[in-house]
């Protein structure tokens, strides 16, 4: 109980700041300093959100599907790559610089290419999500594998453990924490990545919705969809936190102990 109330107390300043910003926004709109077609008031945005709710949900389902498949593939690819790179030094030396380079290519620049190559379906969206989510997870895992105390490996060897056992009992669990940090970043990238690739061509999805309402100059709906994306990203990050606590009960226990 006490822990919960402390948790709420910690969030008060952030909530207050948010409320203040919304209040100022509302004031600006009401005062007429900015014309309402350029900046809809918060109330307009909420109304647009409510009015167009079924439509938004329909598009969100598509985007979420793309983000989820892309993220899953990204996780799988990152796990395989990072593990192989940790196991074989030559692969690490060969691929690490390439990985960095892929991260310097702007997402927005390859998205149209992917559309040209793969068409207007889900494939180019999922591919883009894989490209954006792969990196933080792979780097997290690599760091995690390398964070292992060499003496822990020595101890395992002295106990007669083989390479596979050392990986399973020491290296992989040690990398979990880093893995989830990477996953948290990737989860928010996944939604954004899917939306961006939808901008550049597609039949449904929040990105498609965005381009449509933009063409109609429906700014209130633009804001509504932005908020939806924010909410989805926050929920996904919270889901990652939940998974982390489930996968790492020892770390969750520690956190409990420290608040007492």
């Amino acid at each position: 109980m006490k822990e919960r109330s402390e948790n709420i107390t910690r969030k008060v300043p952030a909530l207050a700041a948010l409320a203040l910003i919304v209040a100022i926004w509302e004031l600006v709109c009401v005062s007429g300093a900015v014309p309402s077609y350029m900046l809809p008031s918060p109330i307009d945005v909420v109304r647009a959100f409510a009015d167009d709710f079924p439509n938004l949900m329909h598009h969100a389902a598509t985007t979420l599907q793309e983000a989820a498949w892309g993220l899953l593939a990204g996780i799988g690819l990152a796990l395989i790559m990072a593990t192989l790179m940790d196991r074989f030094l030559i692969l690490d030396q060969a691929l690490y610089p390439l990985m960095i380079i892929t991260q310097t290519i702007p997402t927005i620049a390859i998205a149209p290419l992917l559309v040209l190559w793969m068409g207007f379906g889900m494939a180019p969206k999922i591919t883009l999500v894989v490209i954006t989510t792969f990196f933080p997870i792979a780097v997290g895992l690599l760091d995690g594998y390398r964070s292992v105390d060499p003496d822990a490996v020595n101890l395992m060897r002295a106990m007669g453990a083989n390479r596979r056992q050392i990986f399973r009992h020491v290296k992989f669990p040690a990398a979990l924490d880093h893995f989830f940090s990477g996953l948290k970043i990737s989860a928010s990238y996944a939604v954004v990545g899917a939306v961006i690739s939808e901008w550049l061509g597609g039949f449904e999805g929040l990105g498609v919705y965005m381009t449509r309402v933009k063409k109609a100059y429906a700014f209130d709906k633009m804001f509504a969809v932005i908020f939806l994306i924010v909410i989805i990203s926050l929920l996904l990050m919270e889901l990652v936190n939940l998974l982390r606590d489930l996968a790492m009960p020892w770390a969750a226990k520690q956190a409990d102990g420290s608040t007492k």
Binding site: D151, R157, A158, G160, A174, L176
Partner: peptide, 27 residues
């Protein structure tokens, strides 16, 4: 050839993710 002699290193090196009994029964 490691694995023939039991070695307790300077740090206790208990694995943080395993319960004490699983740490101890690791060998």
């Amino acid at each position: 050839k490691p694995g023939s002699v039991s070695y307790m290193l300077q740090k206790d090196l208990l694995l943080p993710h395993k319960k004490v009994i699983d740490n101890v029964s690791l060998p």
